[in-house]
Write a protein that binds this DNA or RNA. Structure first.
Lengths: 130, 130
DNA sequence: ATTTTAAAAGCAACTATGTTGCATTAAAAT
DNA sequence: ATTTTAATGCAACATAGTTGCTTTTAAAAT
């Protein structure tokens, strides 16, 4: 079985996730990393972290891809069925951990994964009425 | 006010949408269009159709972008809050027009748009047990 | 029917995002 | 200290989408 190593670059990426309250794109991470590692390395680190269920991948309505730390605690079957909120003004994406959609599906569909993204204005941008 | 014109390319694109039961990507449309028009033109036609609420844009879990005809009938406020199903096997995306998620949101969020995508196995692929 | 006008198309160039192959480096087990 | 192989760096490539500018053409005005 494959072991995963703790490298300087991976540690740096995890630290960046730790400090951020919102989801981050590859580009945003790269800006913070600077030249500590190659941009390809960041892609590969993100792949690994997603694979190890340490972060999850979020695809926004506009097609932008972001990543956020997982906050679940060792669930056996792991579906990221919580909602994500994408602010049209500040462009930040936040996980709404406790918002779970309920729905009724037609027969004969087997669901393995769910993406539920809401977009609009976040509390911050709603208050500063612009 | 801007008027929208009926061009040969636009007609062709609409015909392709008419024939398809599933959502289509730019590439899939381009393949069917052949050299009837430039690929940039297809992008611009899709933009216009989305703007005119004739098709809607669907961003899949894997980041692929597809388009599908709208089936609503002249609603004033137009939110595409129906679900989309993305099959992991045949990669087809279908609109589940009648599946609408219900959810409870924290205060101070203003929702303008919703993306609810389910992925797994569609009835076709579920039956042919592979 | 002809002229006018601006929407739409064509084309080339560019940007952004993500991937792959391969040689090199380094984490961690021995 | 040596060994093993995961991880990295780098170059090249692939795909998706955008932009500027000229030309074409749908459709309105004459």
């Amino acid at each position: 079985m494959k072991t995963t190593r703790n490298t300087a670059a991976k540690t740096a990426v995890l630290e960046i996730f730790g400090k951020s309250k919102t989801a981050l794109s590859h580009t945003e991470i790269q800006k913070q990393i600077g030249d500590l590692c190659d941009r390809v390395t960041i892609y590969r680190i993100l792949d690994r972290l997603v694979n190890d269920d340490i972060v999850h991948k979020i695809v926004n309505l506009d097609g932008t891809v972001k990543y956020a730390k997982c906050h679940h605690h060792a669930q056996r079957v792991h579906i990221h069925n919580h909602a994500h909120f994408s602010c049209e003004n500040c462009l930040e994406i936040t996980c709404l951990e406790n918002v779970k959609p309920s729905y009724i599906l037609p027969h004969n569909y087997k669901v393995n994964d769910i993406n539920f993204t809401l977009s609009g204005l976040c509390p911050n941008c709603l208050n500063s009425n612009n």
